[in-house]
Each structure stands twice: as C-alpha cells, then as structure tokens.
Design a protein around this nucleic acid. Structure first.
Ligand SMILES: [Mn+2]
Ligand SMILES: [Mn+2]
Ligand SMILES: [Mn+2]
Ligand SMILES: [Mn+2]
Lengths: 228, 228
DNA sequence: AAAGGAAATTAGGCATCCCTAAGTAGAAAG
DNA sequence: CTTTCTACTTAGGGATGCCTAATTTCCTTT
C-alpha cells in the first residue's frame, strides 16, 4: 500500500527481534531520517485503524498483530526478491538489497506467488535470512554472533547482516558465507580480533569485532572427552 | 527518479505518436486525474532544468529531447518487464500491464540490463509493442488499425492496445493476437461490424468498430491481376 | 541534590501532488 | 456577430512525509 509505512513496520520488526521495543532514535538511524519525523509517524501508525503499532510516549514502539502481519508480508517480499535477483538474474549478493527494498513495495501477490514458485519456495535468502512462508510463519532467527565465540569453538555460518554492501563484498572475498563451517583459533584480549580457519579454505582470516558482530552462526556441540 | 513525472512523460509520448501535441484533457483522462492538476504539472515539467516538455498555454505539450529520452527509458522498462512477466513468470497477457506500470519506476539499470539479457533482447512485448533498444532506438509503430481495412484485405496482426484487461481477454479468446494472419470477409455499412477469418483458426469472428480500432495490423500487398 | 547529556517530543514550516470551484479563451454553431 | 460549448487555466486548499529549532524528559554522573 504505502512505502513509508512498510519501511517503518519492517524496521520496527527487525529492531524488536533483539530488544523488546524499538526506540525513536534507532528507527531514525535505520531509515536515515530525523527523530522528529519518526515521532510524528509513530503517532500516526499507533492511531491508524487498526493500530499497526503500540506506542507509548518516550517508550518506543512495538508491532501489533496487524502490524506484524504486514511487516512479515513486506519481509517475505524483500527476501523472495533478493533470492530471485541473486539466483535467477545473477546479481551479486551485495547488490540485491537496495533493489529489493524498492521493489518490495510495488509487487502484487501474484508476483510474490510466482517467484516463490519459480524458486521452489526457498526458505532462506542469499544472506541466510529466513523467508516467511505463504502463511507468514518464520522460524526464529537465533542470534548468536560470531563475536561471541571462544577459541576452539566450531560453528556454521547461518546468516550475515545484509545492509552494508561493502561489508558483504569483504565477507564474500573471505569466504564468510552462509553454510561454511569454521573453527575459532584465537581471540586477542586487547582488540577482540578473532582468528578463524574456514573449513575447506586455505589460510586463516582475522576479523575485527565490528565485522564479527555482523556474522551469525550456529555453534556445534563439541565432543566432551572426560576421563572416565 | 519520480513516479509522477515518468507517468506524465510516458503518457505524453504515447499521445504524441498520433497527434503532434498532447492536450491537457487527454493527459488528464489517461492518468485519471483532474485537468487542473495536469496544467500545474505541465508548467512544472516545462520549467524544470533541463525542460522535459515544450508547453505553450492552451496549446498542449510535446516532449523535448531530454523528455523523449526519459520517456523511452520508462517505456523500455515497461515493455521489458511485461515481456519478462509473460514469458518467465507465466503471467497472462491481460495482467502484465498494471504490474509493469508500478515496477517500471523502481527498477535499476542493472535490473533492466539483466532481464533484457535473460530474455535475449526481445524487440516486442506481449502485445506486439516494440521495445526501445539499449540506446533507446525504437522502430516507428505503424498505426494502421484493423478498422481501416476493407473486405478482401489480408493482414497480419502487429499489436493490440494493452491498457484494457477485459479487451485483452476478449481478443485472446478470439485468437486475435500478434502474429496471426487474417482476411477481412465483410464489413457492415451500418454498424461498421467486421467479419474476419483468422488463418489457421476455424470459424469466423465478428468485431465491432470499438474493438477493431484497438487492433493494429500490417496489410499485405495483394497480387494485382490486370488483364494484359 | 545538582548538573550534564542523550533521547524524545512539540512547534512551525516546506515540497510534492493532488483536489474543487470559478473564470477565461477559442472554436463551432446558430 | 453572438451564443454556446469545450478545453484550459487560475485560485485556493488539503494530505503526506519530511525538515530544523526549541523544549522536555529521564537517566547517569558527580
Ligand atoms: Mn523498502
Ligand atoms: Mn537479505
Ligand atoms: Mn507507471
Ligand atoms: Mn504492452
């Protein structure tokens, strides 16, 4: 229906995956607009019928049932489009986000259904983010960041943050893509740099904490060798 | 860049294919907005830098060089998207227009280039309209309407008007699609109804003039049998 | 308890793109 | 030549979604 509303809902959804409420400043930062504009728009979204968000002055916003449904619809569009651009049109994974962020607001349900079909109803986008299904169900995204691992940990890359194109190019160059397994070799106590071995790839990779925080993993349970 | 501007330019382009200037009322009718709004917007388009249209009070609008280029870009997007929806996603030809009219404003040049490539640089959209090439060259659309044919004429359907979905469904049901050859059998002098035989299809089709006017053909030169 | 600072809000305003109502210009008809 | 009709323009205004500047609230620090 409406580009601004959809981008607000999507942003609030993403923010409330980690915290329980989305603050005015965080929303403003993500959307690249002023805090004052956000305040005004939040009031509007809370006052619409049906209300799309719960909003208490000075306490941020969270989505209502209606808002969540709408957000998931946009997120499904976004991630399906990204997958389509990547797989069918041959886009590189750092170029799909902006295109999807514009297209997600204009495609019809027919378009959505047809690309989902064409792609075989994919469950994850190129960055590893889960795609809500037709009924808008989406598995919980576990949020264990690579930065939280310790030396000796083995993990599989699940997904990476997709908003910074330069970061995506950097990650791809270093083979830090969803599906790859890795072992944490070292962790510097001073700058928090991590040294990794990526399985099936020669050499080691050293990552600063700002990068490691943007990569999310599933940790493998290590075999425990206790002396019997 | 801008949805409103692009739809105005596209509309003016289409109108000036037949007349030399696009009138305020015609533009208003096509865009479904008031004449007053059109007047205001035409003034803006004429005053922009560079000017996108030539506009003289009470004398309608025509595109400048810059305006033509922009219009052709949007038309290329539109027709490529229609072709893509039709061929790759399996849309029916009466459903591609609205989707394309929304998407045409948001896709990047990369998207345009990639679907053109995927489709093998098509020269015509599903309705038979020519697609401007990469350099925005487009062959002249000849505008001989089926309604202008006489009994005995043989012609090939080149293109059909694509703005009315119900008409498109009707045409398809009667096999009046680009590429088909037909012979005009009769023409009623009272209501201008035409009776056609479509080659390779059983039976005859009777078309009223309002339908026949929306179908454009290339007439075949008939063999002339002169007594020597 | 007071000061400082970050986050949020209010106030006022601007650009865009549309509207209705009222008036004007020009062409066609009488 | 005058009336009438149509197309067109002007005037005035509304919704949307953003802005900056100023103020308020609340939390942290001292
Ligand atoms: Mn978006
Ligand atoms: Mn993504
Ligand atoms: Mn359009
Ligand atoms: Mn078409």
């Amino acid at each position: 229906m409406n580009v601004a509303t959809e981008d607000y809902l999507k942003t609030i959804f993403n923010l409330t995956q980690q915290q329980d409420r989305a603050g005015t400043k965080d929303i403003a930062d993500r959307l690249g607009i002023s805090q004052a504009s956000v305040t005004g728009y939040l009031q509007k979204l809370a006052g619409s019928d049906p209300p799309l968000i719960l909003y208490k002055k000075r306490d941020g916003a969270s989505l209502t049932e209606a808002g969540t449904r709408w957000a998931l619809k946009v997120i499904r569009n976004h991630r399906l489009i990204e997958t389509f651009l990547y797989r069918t049109l041959g886009y590189s994974w750092d170029r799909v986000h902006d295109e999807a962020c514009r297209m997600e607001h204009v495609i019809s349900e027919e378009f959505e259904a047809r690309i989902a079909e064409l792609l075989g109803n994919p469950t994850h986008d190129p960055h590893g983010d889960p795609i809500p299904d037709r009924n808008l169900h989406m598995p919980d995204e576990k949020a264990l960041s690579l930065a939280e691992l310790q030396p000796g940990d083995v993990a599989m890359i699940e997904r990476v943050s997709d908003s910074d194109a330069a970061l995506l190019r950097y990650l791809e160059k270093n083979r830090l893509v969803p599906g790859k397994r890795l072992t944490v070799k070292e962790r510097s106590p001073f700058d928090q740099n991590m040294t990794l071995r990526i399985h099936g790839v020669r050499g080691k990779v050293v990552l600063g904490p700002s990068v490691a925080q943007q990569v999310f993993v599933e940790k493998e349970v290590r075999h425990v060798h206790t002396a019997a």
